[in-house]
C-alpha cells in the first residue's frame, strides 16, 4: 500500500479542518485501525492523508441515570469491562463480546464499527434495539441522528464530508439480549443475528435483525406481535413467523436466504427467553 500523510490532531476543530483540507476521496480516518488496515491492504482505499483520532479526548464512558454515553474512540474492551454494562444492558454486553477477539477489542472502537457500517455488524442491531443515537461534529457544528438514520448500507452512512462521530448515546438501559449464528463459536462473523430489548418506559419490545445486506434493521411487525412485557408462546411464534416470512432477508456469499429464514425463528425465541425483565 502506498504511504500517506498521517496526522493526529489534538482537538476536534483541528481534526475537522484536516478532513476539510482534503478531497473526501483522498482522506481516511483511523480510530482503532482494525478495519482501515484491511481496506488499505486490499487497495479498496488509497488515501493521501489519514487523520488519526488517537489524541482526541473521546475515550469516555458516562452513565447518567438510565442513559449511557460512549465516546467514539473508546476501545470496545473497555466498554465490555465497565462494571455496570453487563448488568444494566446485557444485550449490548453480549454484542460487544461477539466482536472479534479480546486483542481486537482492545483496539477496535464503537465509532469505527458504526462508521464502517457492515451488514453483519454485531453492534448496530443492538444499538437499533436500544434506540441509540450518534452525536456528530463537523464543519457546520454538532448534530444528533438516530442510529437508524445514520446507518444507510454497507460502508454507507449519513456522515457528511468533514464530519466525525464523537459519541454514541443510549438513552435508556434496557433488559436486552443479542444472539447470533456463526461457523466458529468465537471470533467469527454472524450469518444471522437477532437483537431484542424491552423498554420499561413504553412497555414495548424492540426487535432488530442483522447479518445480511444491505444493513441491520428493526422489524416493527415482530415487535407488535410480541405485545407487552411477558409474551406467550403464541406471541413469540407469531413474531418469529413474521420475521421468517416477511422480513427483507436476503442471501449473500456467506449464507442463503432460506438458511437465514430458518435461523431467525429459534434466535428470536431464545433472545426473548434470555431477556430478564424486572431483574436488572
Amino acid at each position: 500500500m502506498p504511504a500517506f500523510d498521517l496526522v493526529a490532531p489534538g482537538t476536534s476543530d483541528e481534526a475537522i479542518a484536516e478532513l476539510r483540507a482534503s478531497d473526501p476521496g483522498e482522506v481516511a480516518v483511523v480510530a482503532g485501525g482494525t478495519d482501515l488496515l484491511f481496506d488499505l491492504d486490499d487497495g479498496r482505499i488509497t488515501p493521501r492523508k489519514v487523520v488519526s483520532l488517537r489524541r482526541l479526548p473521546w475515550r469516555t464512558l458516562d452513565w447518567n441515570g438510565p442513559t449511557l454515553t460512549v465516546g467514539s474512540t473508546l476501545p470496545l474492551r473497555e466498554l465490555e469491562n465497565d462494571p455496570e454494562l453487563r448488568r444494566r444492558i446485557p444485550g449490548l454486553y453480549a454484542a460487544v463480546r461477539a466482536v472479534g477477539s479480546v486483542a481486537l477489542r482492545h483496539q477496535a472502537t464503537l465509532g469505527g464499527n458504526l462508521g464502517r457500517s457492515a451488514p453483519a455488524s454485531d453492534l448496530v442491531p443492538m444499538l437499533l434495539a436500544l434506540d441509540a443515537e450518534v452525536d456528530l461534529v463537523g464543519p457546520k457544528g454538532e448534530r444528533r441522528l438516530s442510529v437508524d438514520r445514520f446507518v444507510i448500507g454497507s460502508r454507507r452512512t449519513a456522515l457528511a464530508a468533514g464530519e466525525l462521530i464523537r459519541s454514541v448515546r443510549i438513552p435508556e438501559a434496557r433488559p436486552s439480549a443479542y444472539l447470533l449464528q456463526r461457523v466458529r463459536p468465537f471470533h467469527d462473523i454472524s450469518h444471522m443475528a437477532v437483537a431484542v430489548a424491552f423498554s420499561p418506559t413504553d412497555a414495548r419490545w424492540r426487535v432488530a435483525v442483522a447479518g445480511f445486506p444491505p444493513r441491520p434493521l428493526r422489524f416493527p411487525e415482530a415487535e407488535e406481535a410480541l405485545g407487552g412485557s411477558t409474551p406467550g408462546a403464541a406471541d413469540i411464534a407469531r413474531a418469529a413467523e413474521a420475521l421468517a416470512t416477511r422480513a427483507p432477508i436476503v442471501a449473500d456469499k456467506r449464507a442463503s436466504e432460506e438458511y437465514r429464514r430458518q435461523l431467525v425463528r429459534p434466535l428470536l425465541a431464545r433472545a426473548i427467553a434470555a431477556t430478564r425483565i424486572g431483574d436488572r
Binding site: 498521517l6 485501525g33 482494525t34 486483542a103 481486537l104
Partner: peptide
Amino acid sequence: CTVLRDGRGTLSCLLLTHE
C-alpha cells in the same frame, strides 16, 4: 502477532507503528 501494549493484548499486525 499478539504483543502487550501498555499491558493489554494487541494485534501488532493491525496497528500502525505511528499509532
